[in-house]
Design a protein around this nucleic acid. Structure first.
Length: 195
DNA sequence: CTATTGATGTTCT
DNA sequence: GAACATCAATAGA
């Protein structure tokens, strides 16, 4: 028999996920499969942000850049990082909360990712928020797009063991334990202390 | 394996 | 003008 989850069931699980605050949706997303135009893989690392969080783009209220974060859940918020890279978030139940996708384990469309990244090592293809957007071909053109409709796809996976730690690359609220990853995964951007 | 540093350009003060 | 949800290259242990 086919053990794949049906489309209606997937949409139900997605709706359930987006109804959560990002701090609960972020760990719940570990193990889901995310693709764009058939290219992507298993989510193995995420971070949560919200409007009460000094490290969040949404902390100081709506602006042109962060407008998508203040919109409906299920949207994709893409921003430019350090003038060079793109990073993608999934908007969750608000206000203005989102999950940063920090690393995936490449499983679909390996050839396209290798071509875009100019690398072959699967561990280096998507082990960081900027890397995975480059590998998947996600740019500002996808800002505001829906995660629950083509060309995006987001499918639940079997339950994963989740490690927790402080977020990476921020200078405010550095201690908040809002970084999540799959225990033991070799595809995360940096190791978790107790995994 | 960890630590450090320069590159890059948009956003916000 | 400063800060920035990063990356790749490099040096060292």
């Amino acid at each position: 028999m086919n053990d794949a989850i049906s489309r209606p069931e997937t949409l139900r699980r997605q709706a359930e996920l987006f109804a959560m605050h990002s701090s609960r949706a972020a760990p719940a997303l570990i193990g889901w499969t995310l693709t764009f135009d058939g290219v992507g893989g298993r989510i193995v690392e995420t971070e949560a942000y919200d409007h009460e969080d000094p490290a969040s783009h949404s902390f100081s209220g709506p602006t042109a850049r962060n407008a998508v974060m203040f919109g409906p859940a299920g949207a994709i918020y893409v921003y430019r990082s350090y003038g060079i890279h793109w990073c993608m978030n999934l908007v969750c139940a608000g206000p203005a909360s989102a999950v940063l996708i920090r690393a995936i384990e490449p499983t679909e469309g390996l050839d396209a990712m290798i071509a875009r990244r100019g690398l072959e090592d699967p561990r280096l293809l998507c082990s960081g928020p900027g890397k995975l957007c480059q590998a998947m071909g996600v740019t500002h053109a996808q800002n505001g797009a829906r995660i629950d409709r083509p060309p995006f796809d987001l499918v639940p996976g079997p339950p994963a063991q989740v490690a927790v730690g402080p977020r990476i690359g921020i200078t405010k609220a550095v201690e908040a334990p809002w970084r999540f990853g799959e225990k033991g995964s070799r595809f995360v951007s940096r190791p978790f202390p107790n995994a």
